[in-house]
Each structure stands twice: as structure tokens, then as C-alpha cells.
């Protein structure tokens, strides 16, 4: 019974279904950031909360198998670099840092507003991964015993 990590079977079953809906909702919020309320920050936190949901329901060992934590670190750093990269491309194309160099498109369409959706996606990935990593590293320690496990 040592392997009985996480919460009960009911919570695990519900999580298995609901977590994908949470991810879809987060991605929707990110992609529609230039049309509706929300955007990169809100959607990123929703994605982080989805990861957190799995983490709380299934426990540490499952997450270690399910996710590649090193890859998440890389993803976080990559999105920060790409943000600056888009800014530098803006200098090359139009002469201003972070200038909007893509076509504006039609108002109220999903693919419009130039670089704004791209930057929203990058911010969403960065915020989501970074916040999950903080909780992940905080949970690696049992500070009751005054030391790591």
C-alpha cells in the first residue's frame, strides 16, 4: 500500500477527464487574448493550475513519469528568448524594438493583430511553466523534518 500516493480513486478519475478541459480552456483564453478578456497571463495560470491539478491528485511520482521536468525548464527559457527575438526582428523589419511587423489583418478575426497573438502565446507558455515549476520545487521538501527528504 506504499504506492497509494495522491488522493482517492474518485478524485483521480475525475481529474483524468477534467484536466484536458482545463488545458483546452487555457489555450482558448491565450489564443483569443486579443479579442476577449484574458490573454497570456490568465491563460498561462490556467495551464499551470491544470498541471497542479494532476500533481495534487496523483502525487509526485506520477508527475516524474508523466512530465520531463528538464524539458519544462528549457521551454520556459526558450519562450523568454523568443520574446526578445520577436522584438529584434521588429527592429530589422520596421526599425522599432517589439514593433508590430506582421499584417494587421481584419478586426475581430482570430488571425489578426500581427505579433500580439504570438507574444500572447509565448507569455502564456512562460507563465504557465514557470509557476508550475515553483510549486514543484517547493513541494520537493518536507520542511517539518528540517531538511529535504
Amino acid at each position: 500500500m506504499k504506492s497509494q500516493e495522491g488522493m482517492t480513486i474518485i478524485v483521480k478519475t475525475v481529474t483524468r477527464i477534467s484536466v484536458w478541459l482545463i488545458f483546452v480552456y487555457g489555450i482558448y483564453i491565450i489564443f483569443h487574448g486579443h479579442l476577449t478578456p484574458g490573454g497570456g497571463f490568465g491563460g498561462g495560470v490556467i495551464i499551470a493550475l491544470g498541471f497542479l491539478n494532476v500533481f495534487l491528485a496523483y502525487g509526485k511520482e506520477y508527475i516524474k513519469k508523466w512530465l520531463n521536468i528538464g524539458l519544462l525548464h528549457d521551454l520556459e527559457a526558450t519562450s523568454a528568448i523568443l520574446f526578445v527575438g520577436i522584438g529584434i526582428i521588429g527592429i530589422a523589419m520596421t526599425g522599432g524594438f517589439l514593433a508590430n511587423f506582421l499584417s494587421k489583418g481584419t478586426l475581430f478575426r482570430l488571425f489578426s493583430a500581427g505579433t500580439i497573438p504570438l507574444l500572447n502565446i509565448l507569455i502564456g507558455a512562460k507563465v504557465g511553466v514557470a509557476l508550475f515549476l515553483v510549486v514543484w520545487s517547493l513541494s520537493l521538501f518536507h520542511i517539518d523534518e528540517g531538511g529535504e527528504q
Binding site: 520542511i143 528540517g146 531538511g147
Partner: peptide, 17 residues
Amino acid sequence: ELGITAMLVALAVRLYQ
């Protein structure tokens, strides 16, 4: 603010340790 809270929590945990 959330980033600051996370960092303060990490500091507090370390101080407690």
C-alpha cells in the same frame, strides 16, 4: 506580485529549515 510571493515563501521555508 505572485512572483514576489513565491520568492518570499521560498525564503521563509529556507529560514525555517
